[in-house]
Design a protein around this nucleic acid. Structure first.
Lengths: 201, 201
DNA sequence: GTTTTTATTGAACATTTGTTCATAAAGCCT
DNA sequence: AGGCTTTATGAACAAATGTTCAATAAAAAC
């Protein structure tokens, strides 16, 4: 039977996810206890097990949700770019990646750092999602090569290099610093553009 | 009094470092117990405390040693490059960074991922070393700007972007794959060079 | 207002944690 | 061989771990 009113559980579930996300990002999966999570949710440790089967699953669901949301957000953005020039699409990807990820530093951190705590099947699932996301960039690069606008040695490596460079922003950027995020985006876009363009020098 | 012969302790100390390095990289600092380390060294847990004051210090010393070694290795390489063109020096840095770090994946992983387990003072010490290393690249970039060979928007950001891009190699490269490490170096060098060069397009 | 379903507690469990220390073994020097 | 210093053992410590479960409270349904 469908629930027609809000209940405690409707708010506790998401609260667990938020608390776990923050704590895992801050101290690492292994260093966070169920009791710490419970305390932040405002509940006893035993109650968590009404929402999750075990600690592992909590981590997996956080990672999977994050990856699916990135992919979905990009697909939505990509729909708006239909028919646009390949250079505009690459710029859009660059700015999207930086901006979207900077808004979710905790989830990004976890999705990149806690892969070793996953069982092989779960690892494969998460990696497939990441691979799909990388494929979106790779497609743009390959189109640019076909059209003669880009000149790259290897589409796969170049994809990884670009994403690695963009990911670097997460490790040092803090709002309130010397540059706004938009300025940072512009600097990175400038470098990305040059790094995949033919060089006349 | 100086020890004139090899003794058990001369080999156990380094063995602890090696085992801890491997285990911390594989499972994370918090997930590795002193007993696991001891087992791999071939000793009881209590014996570890003849070599280290506590678990924390073990981590710090691993990170500090790594950072100091990177810096020293680069300084040595840099000495050979005295008087060389700025482009050659940038290429040398690019190849050095990839090669050196790929030969020590465990230490790199730990030095980048376990910073949150450091006390503020220790964190500051490690960060100072990293900053000194980044300064080396930044110097090259700034010289290239002065000489008119490079064209970048912001030396600091560009430094971080380049290092971020190079660090990405560690996350995906495995020897025995499609490309040799030298080929990968060449692809990355091509991108780095273009990304800091003036664009005529 | 009573029953039925759902959510929470709080204690209990078997392990595991980092670290200490008295005791024992091993290595070195004369 | 005997004495001295350096290492290693193995038991012990209190605290913390993930997870379970009967009992209890709260909410929903009728």
């Amino acid at each position: 039977m469908a629930r027609t009113q809000g209940s405690h559980s409707d708010v506790t579930g998401p609260k667990i996810q938020r608390s776990a996300l923050r704590l895992f990002a801050q101290h690492g999966f292994a260093a966070v206890s169920m009791r710490q999570i419970a305390k932040e949710v405002g509940v006893q440790a035993g109650a968590l097990y009404n929402y999750i089967p075990d600690k592992q699953s909590l981590l997996v669901s956080l990672m999977q949700t994050h990856m699916e949301e990135v992919l979905a957000a990009w697909h939505q953005k990509a729909a708006d770019l239909q028919g646009q020039d390949v250079l505009a699409r690459l710029e859009a990807f660059t700015r999207f990646h930086i901006r979207y990820h900077m808004e979710r530093p905790d989830a990004v951190f976890i999705a990149y750092m806690e892969l070793r705590n996953l069982t092989p099947e779960n690892f494969a699932r998460i990696e497939a999602l990441r691979s799909a996301y990388e494929g979106e960039l790779r497609l743009i690069l390959q189109e640019g090569v076909t059209s003669g606008q880009f000149e790259i040695s290897d589409a796969k490596i170049t994809t990884l290099a670009v994403i690695g460079m963009l990911n670097g922003v997460m490790t040092w950027y803090r709002s309130g610093g010397r540059l706004s995020l938009e300025e940072v985006e512009t600097i990175y876009w400038d470098m990305v553009r040059k790094s995949v363009s033919p060089m006349v020098g």
